[in-house]
Design a protein around this nucleic acid. Sequence first.
DNA 1: ACCTGAACACCGTTCAAGT
DNA 2: ACCTGAACACCGTTCAAGT
Lengths: 198, 198
Amino acid sequence: MSGWFGIARSAVTAPTRRRSDSLANRARIVAAARAVVTSDAELNLHGIAQQAGVGQGTLYRHFPTREDLLAEVYHHEVDELVAAAPLLLAAHAPAEALAQWLDRVAKYAAVKRGVIAAVEAALWQDLTTKSLGPIGAALTTLLDAGKEAGTIRADVDAEDVILLLAALTRIDRADYDDRAQSLLAIIAGGLRQASTQR
Amino acid sequence: MSGWFGIARSAVTAPTRRRSDSLANRARIVAAARAVVTSDAELNLHGIAQQAGVGQGTLYRHFPTREDLLAEVYHHEVDELVAAAPLLLAAHAPAEALAQWLDRVAKYAAVKRGVIAAVEAALWQDLTTKSLGPIGAALTTLLDAGKEAGTIRADVDAEDVILLLAALTRIDRADYDDRAQSLLAIIAGGLRQASTQR
DNA sequence: ACCTGAACACCGTTCAAGT
DNA sequence: ACCTGAACACCGTTCAAGT
């Protein structure tokens, strides 16, 4: 279910058998990063390496960019979002399914701001590869269904939505709930095809 | 015309008479920053100080944060945007005026990405002061007119729009024109009150 | 009153040496 | 094959000394 689209999550794990210390280090790095991100905020790479008890070089070997690390930390959250798309589509009309999916993204983002960063990271990672990545694919599914139904604008794509979603990151923690809802309402509304209008 | 709303642009220029070398330094710093921003990108503060021929401390004295500096560099652009709002409102229906104003923002952003950063900076600067700043005021004027006419959602405000506009910064230079238009269409559409719909 | 620039702190990145 | 950690580069920020 989580591998709903056949895209490799991380090319870092090579086909060759890996040494056990390497795997252990990788796990400790991810655990340390998750702890930092979950607690308050701001992960700095030196600190992560130290808390994980590995050298900086080791961190780099496993995760060349901060995005790679974040993507791994939010592995599960991303999977859940990806899995939710077809389920929502089965239960609701496309435009409504999309709105609910966006809502779910906002909920994740409320708990952990990094989720959005990870969502972005997942996209940027793959943008060079021309493929959009699992999150992009999930979004595309939702958008396409709506376009076919005539309730979503034909001239928008997943990248548009992800770019706009990045705004959630900048909201002040204090008034996140209200403002996130505002932004999502604007985005969801803007994606709708005003077929009955005018 | 530019001071259409009685908000001081910069509190750095104190009421007391300033020394001429101070003024000259300030001008040179702004000129250097403008040159850097206009040419390609990435302004680093050490470099600006060096190109301006002043010490780092001097740069700091004049512009405590990078945002302060950017805001000054884009002084004129911000003024023009602010001045455009009432003119557009006089010539078009509110929702249309808003759409055109957003379009103008995108045009500025196309030439110089920093404009958006400055727009954001201008807002963030003043967010602590509770006032929204000139750009926020201009946007509020546009939104309010639309709300009164019943063509703009009543539950959105200037900060929502500015948060979403920040997405323009992240667009790849290569496909800026197309994608900026997409994003603006979504934003403008999402701000509209779907009064005739449903 | 304002300026200079050495110095500090922080953080991402690399690489020679180790096992 | 993988790891370590000193070292480098970069950049924002501060501050003692100068005029």
